[in-house]
Simulated assay, not measured.
Amino acid sequence: MFQLGQVLKGAASSYKISEKLYRTVWKAVNQQTEQTVVVKYDANHSHLKNEIDKLRRFQKRTRHIRPLIDEIGMSNEDNVPALVLKWLDDDILNTTKSRQLTRVELKRVSRGILEALKVIHEDGFIHTDVKPMNVLVNYSPSDGEITDIQLADLAAVTHEDSQDAIDGKVLMCLIYGDGFCIFSPDVSVDHEEYTGRILWRHNEFLGPFPLSYMEIAPDHILGFLACIIENTTEYKPFRNITKRELSDEDKAFLLKILKLDPRDRPTVKELLADEWFST
């Protein structure tokens, strides 16, 4: 799509491509300010315009959504349409593979994600999925501590009465570090038992599944759920997790987010007021 050294003209500046990061994501340098930026292309121009509209709508209301810096070729046929976004040092998934977050960082990142989602929810949208690789960070130049947190992608969709909040599995990954997630199954995503094993692990650590969940479960997983519920005995969530792995305060907070019936989960606004952030 783009070539190394290629110069792209935006509405505000021009950008020289310096590195290919992913299939449609490039690293570039602002030729006026010499700052590093991200150039993102999407072959579906309606998707690109939708993302621009969402970023414009939300980014001035929170610093935790990655800012749109410029647009390329949206009204100029000389360039392929693309977005220019702020560059951040790293993502949380990569960070936690090399070290565990400090308690201050853990709560700072969690609050940043929630504050971004709160702004989206206030306008009747939800973020379809929050993943560690989509949480970007900047570091302090002096001690390397995380200073800024932003959601990289804004896959927002309209909703009515959704109570979905931060994905508790992301928080579990941050607490454990090493990119480890207790809910990840030991088979690939295309394996026929993938969904069933995820449900079983959720049941193992958080269960048992309430019967109310059967009311909203998609048809293709009802068979899995029936088998799991039939073979489940009563036990406490996180029963095999020690205090060394998960403190009592972390466990209490996670259990609020990870209710197996999403209708029982607190809203983002309620989570931001939780005592977990004040301790």
Rank of each mutant, 00 (worst) to 15 (best):
M133D: 12
A152V: 00
R103N: 08
I228G: 09
C227I: 11
A217S: 13
W200A: 13
L114D: 00
H121T: 04
D178N: 14
Y139V: 03
T158F: 11
K107Y: 02
D190I: 06
V119P: 00
K131P: 03
S110P: 03
G223V: 09
F224R: 06
G179K: 07
Q100D: 05
Q100L: 12
S98H: 04
N134T: 12
P185V: 10
M133T: 12
V104F: 11
L171N: 04
V119T: 13
I126M: 12
I175F: 10
S184N: 14
D148I: 04
S188W: 01
M172Y: 04
E215H: 11
E105G: 02
L154S: 04
K131Q: 12
I92N: 02
I216E: 11
I166S: 02
K107M: 05
H220Q: 10
E105M: 06
L171E: 04
N138Q: 07
L222D: 03
R201A: 11
T158K: 15
R99I: 10
S98M: 03
E215I: 11
T195C: 08
T195F: 03
T195P: 02
I113E: 03
L171I: 15
D164G: 00
L222G: 03
T195Q: 14
P185H: 06
Y194M: 06
D164R: 13
D148E: 15
H220I: 08
K97L: 06
K131Y: 11
L222Y: 00
A156Q: 05
I175W: 02
S184Q: 14
L106I: 07
G168S: 09
L199I: 12
S184F: 05
R197N: 09
F125Q: 05
A116W: 01
E192W: 05
H121W: 05
E215S: 13
L106N: 09
I182P: 10
K169G: 09
D178E: 14
R99L: 08
H220S: 08
E122H: 14
S140K: 04
V104A: 13
I149R: 00
L154Q: 05
A165F: 01
P185M: 10
I175A: 08
E160S: 13
Q150G: 05
S140H: 12
S184R: 12
L114M: 14
L171G: 00
I228F: 10
I221R: 01
I221K: 00
W200S: 11
M214D: 13
I175P: 01
N203V: 09
V130H: 00
G168I: 06
V189C: 04
H159W: 10
S142P: 02
N138P: 02
K131A: 13
A152R: 04
P132G: 12
D148P: 04
T158Y: 10
R103T: 08
E160T: 11
G177M: 12
L206S: 07
T147I: 15
Q163A: 03
D178K: 15
E192L: 09
K169H: 07
A152G: 15
I228H: 09
V187D: 02
P210G: 12
V189I: 14
I126K: 06
E160Q: 07
E145F: 07
F183W: 11
L93A: 13
L199P: 00
K118Q: 14
R201H: 11
C227Q: 15
R111W: 01
